[in-house]
């Protein structure tokens, strides 16, 4: 089983190591501009890693780009929910924001374990549990073919429980991925309007670093919602997604 899990992590093999190391060196020397570009290069090479997003957020924060930094850290936290350093950085950055907003939720309350597990971890757990149930079924089939008696009741129940548990965790993982609709305002200030186009009324103004949830989207605009229930449309250029798999593009 351990071997299986390790094999499953083969897809997470090392990529983007060179630009990442270069970015860390640049960050240590205080060259935040080069650090940010190196971290971005690592991302482009496929290194969607919490350490990369952590470093990218730090370099952007040093450059005064609080909004993109918040987006980068939020992505890092999505990949490593138990990373206290990233969470502490976000807390510090939030103190300097103009809008005092509750960050949007990242999963349903019923799937509480998703707050401590990354999608990769819960995916591995789900696959391992389902595989265990299936391996027990294979063992039962082998017993039949070898003219041995059926498996004991406890073993059969283990297979059933393991399989159901795996399916439940898999379901929660899919749901958590679907809930991943967060975004961060990266413009200094943006009006949130009631409708698309000139007919829309300005409802409220959000400032850089505000964390929102995206409910709907067009080619040019996104319908955002706040935790307190307020909704409105903003231009897509003012937003940066917190989904780690989305491209990380920061306007210069």
């Amino acid at each position: 089983m351990i071997g299986f899990i390790l094999a499953s992590l083969l897809g997470c093999g090392s990529v983007g190591q060179e630009p990442f190391d270069a970015a860390l060196s640049a960050l240590r020397t205080g060259d935040s501009t080069n650090a940010a570009s190196s971290f971005t290069e690592a991302l482009e090479q496929g290194a969607q890693d919490p350490a990369v997003y952590h470093g990218l957020g730090n370099s952007l924060y040093r450059l005064g780009k609080t909004g993109p930094a918040m987006a980068a850290w939020r992505r890092g936290l999505a990949l490593a929910p138990r990373n206290g350093d990233i969470a502490a950085n976000m807390d510090l950055a939030r103190k300097g924001l103009k809008d005092r907003l509750e960050p949007p939720t990242t999963h349903r309350g019923v799937f509480f374990w998703q707050s401590a597990l990354s999608p990769l971890e819960s995916g591995v757990f789900a696959a391992a549990a389902i595989a265990l149930g299936l391996w027990i079924m294979v063992l039962g089939r082998v017993q039949t073919l070898r003219r041995r008696g059926p498996l004991s009741s406890a073993v059969r129940w283990t297979a059933v429980v393991s399989g159901l548990l795996g399916l439940l965790v898999a379901l929660s993982t899919v749901d958590a991925l679907n809930q991943r609709r967060g975004a961060v305002i990266v413009a200094p200030g943006v009006e949130v309007r009631s409708a698309l186009g000139p007919s829309g009324v300005s409802l409220f103004v959000l400032h850089e670093g505000a964390e929102v949830s995206v409910s709907d989207a067009t080619d040019t605009h996104k319908l955002i919602s706040l935790v307190d229930g307020r909704k409105g449309w903003v231009t897509s250029r003012a937003l940066l997604s917190t989904d780690p798999s989305a491209p990380f593009v920061v306007a210069q």
Binding site: L9, G16, A42, G46, A51, L120
Partner: peptide
């Protein structure tokens, strides 16, 4: 802010990368 404490190998830690496996 707190610095990056890990200097090991980085990779793609998304579910999509490991999904086929």
């Amino acid at each position: 802010i707190l610095p990056v404490s890990r200097a090991g190998a980085v990779g793609n830690r998304t579910l999509a990368a490991a999904f086929p496996y």
